[in-house]
Nucleic acid binder design. Sequence first.
DNA 1: AGCACGCCGACT
DNA 2: GTCGGCGTGCTC
Length: 742
Amino acid sequence: MTERYARIIIDISHEKVDRTFDYRIPERLFEEVSVGSLVLIPFGKGNAMRKGYVVGITPHADYDRDKIKEIAGIVTDSVTAESLLISLAWWLKEQYGSTMNQALKTVLPVKQKIKPKEKKVLRCLLQREALLEAWKESERKSYKARSRLFLAFMDNPLIPYEIAVNQMNLSSATLKPMIEKGFVSMESEEIYRNPIKMKQSQVPRVLLNQEQQVIVDRFSKDYSEDLRQTYLIHGVTGSGKTEVYMELIDTVIQDGKQVILLIPEIALTYQTVMRFYGRFGSRVSIINSRLSAGERYDQFERARNGDIDIMIGPRSALFTPFAKLGLILIDEEHEGAYKSEVVPRYHAREVAEKRASLQGASLVLGSATPSLEAYTKALRGEYLLFLLTERAKKDSRLANVLVADLRQELKEGNKTIFSKNLKAMMEDRLEKKEQIMLFINRRGYANFVSCRSCGEAIRCPHCDVTLTLHNNKSLVCHYCGHTIPMPEKCPSCGSPYIANFGVGTQKIEQMTKKMFPSARTLRMDLDTTKKKGGHEEILTAFSEGEADILIGTQMIVKGHDFPNVTLVGVLAADLSLYTPDYRAAERTFQLLTQAAGRAGRDQKPGDVVIQTYSPEHYAITAAANQDYPTFYNQEMVFRRMMKYPPANVLLTVQFSSRNEKTLAASADAVTAYISPMTEEEMVQTIGPAEASVYKINDIYRKILYLKHENYDILIKIRDQIDGFSENRPDLFDLVLIQYDFS
DNA sequence: AGCACGCCGACT
DNA sequence: GTCGGCGTGCTC
């Protein structure tokens, strides 16, 4: 007789039980129990019934046969969304390499806290006299735990249960008899949270142009015919993708289904939010990283209860527990923020595809500069591609782009950061009272400080990077935050001639003020937007015309509409082009295209000046011509030649350790161990090599790259590495191995 | 989380 | 000796 066992996670959130337990599946439940099921199981000494999630099914349990208990039953009441998310967690674990717990925490972030709405409180039932008496008694008998509690009650008759357990180290073994004796009572206090307050304004429905209408019509037709697939909308900046999204959302919620809209956090501005509120009112909810765990829980709860139909948010909104999901939209699909930086290192696009297929939902991706991955799939016919080539606003045209060759400028003796053309155009716009945006892909005052005598750069003692000068008085490490005051003289040779190199936003601002003394400038970078709402504040000030020139990093090129901006200057396009990353050209193209899209959003024509030392590079010429297909073809030649994604799958294995020697030994051992398999399967192996920043926070890192066209083979190799490292604690106890697929 | 076990001081 | 509080460890 065959037996089946289920691997189950107990529905209690506590570190100690944060793992799987095996249970026998009774034959009568063979049909019903599958990965993702929510089941009832007897747990612990008292066999108390608890909920558990089935995360795996095996024919053999690796636990003492006699001690294994049986699943008591299955929980059926309306848990579809939850069990679906559990199976999604399982998929995440398999696909990206993490533990089931890490995957579950990603998918059910609110499971961390048990019912945050309810807060348990201990109330003292003794009067002052009796309390004093009880305390003396417990002191005399040296009942330490009780004594601590009584003492605390003297100050306050109400003590949160959590504090009693965690800080006062009281256990239920102590509390239970005290409750029975009537000394204390346990109460749960309801805490009501205010829902987000937003007024609903009536936004007039915009008439779609023909290109937009084509998308809506096709989607609606497919949707009504129960055809679910992935669509890629490639729309130039300002082509009105949001209007299309709203129509698609409308189609789906009219059908009684729910919608998730993913937006990069940085683009989740007040303006955007208000547009959706205006159209869909209180059926919309928003999550962002500033919400507290409780507020977040509430929003997910509202989704679960069916109080809302639309969830808008960053990556994590993907796990909104909608039971009847009909559509997932990913705006700015190419954004790096859609890739998780922590284990499991999932990509929202891939997870969205999986979730959509699990729940029978459609997926719509939108971008002005699609990722090579998405565009490749669209060309292969896996996605349905739509184009939006016109700007939605009447009379608004794409900007004229001019590329300024900085090598030439230098030859002609121009040592400022502004090329002739840019300077002339800036003067012209200031004259006309039109606005200018200056874009630089760096923050801080300068890249690094170095000595002109000995050439030594000042470096972070914990990380393998140079320190960055801030406000001309302190040096900050951008990796670990280590800060020292700007030294008077060179720490290595003592020479007083030390100075900053490179250019940052602060320096640009200073130089701009020098060159255009009458212009009012605003600066926007990580430093000026650190405080809450700083972001919004600066953008609002600029859009209300409080400044003539906005200087900033990446963040100024996202989203916002500034009708009065007619000139955009990209000061050094090369900065992102020569980073040690195979995506450098793609990212540069995207940034330049987005930046160019900021100019001339209204009737007034716009100009863009791209300053560069590599005017002939295809990422720059293609961006200047707003020519995505040419860029795509060129870049794909490079990716195919180098076997980089999306031509191949790239598995990055990162080894990290505080001990440099152990690190090298373990990385080499792994490489040697997998070499028979990599040779047989023709997997291209690079490394192990030191990471581009070898040391961060005193932890050394080495990288091993594996390339192959077949995902499954790389997964097999990953599993081999996992097995190997588990069997060699001598090498891997102090080494952390992390995987990343791209 | 919640139960049981074993340790240890207090009381008879 | 016994009783009972307290801290810890385990739960398939």
